[in-house]
């Protein structure tokens, strides 16, 4: 059974930021709660692009603050880019 967008986002966040899955809650902020440094934010966006085969707008993607917002943003990108 395929994973949901939220599950895949959670997995990518754990891999890139080296954090435990239980820390990756919808309200968790990438910087303040999960410790993402500037370069890691860029790496996270790049990893999302690869995971979901998307081309993200740099400014839009980097302005996303929380895990929940990232899920919604990615779902929106999937709708726009993959129909």
């Amino acid at each position: 059974m395929s994973q949901s967008v939220a599950e895949r986002v959670s997995r990518v966040v754990c891999e890139v930021l080296k954090v435990k899955a239980e820390a990756v809650r919808p309200g968790a902020r990438f910087g303040a709660d999960l410790g993402a440094e500037s370069i890691q934010s860029v790496e996270l966006v790049a990893a999302f692009e690869e995971e979901f085969d998307l081309d993200m707008d740099e400014d839009e993607a980097l302005s996303v603050q929380t895990v929940g917002d990232a899920v919604r943003y990615i779902e929106d990108c999937i709708r726009r880019q993959h129909g």
């Binding site: 370069i39 860029v42 966006v45 790049a46 692009e49 993200m56 740099e58």
Partner: peptide
């Protein structure tokens, strides 16, 4: 290229 596209080089630099 956006900075997302050059992230591997940026990581190497860091």
């Amino acid at each position: 290229l956006s900075k997302i596209k050059v992230h591997k080089i940026a990581r190497w630099v860091m």
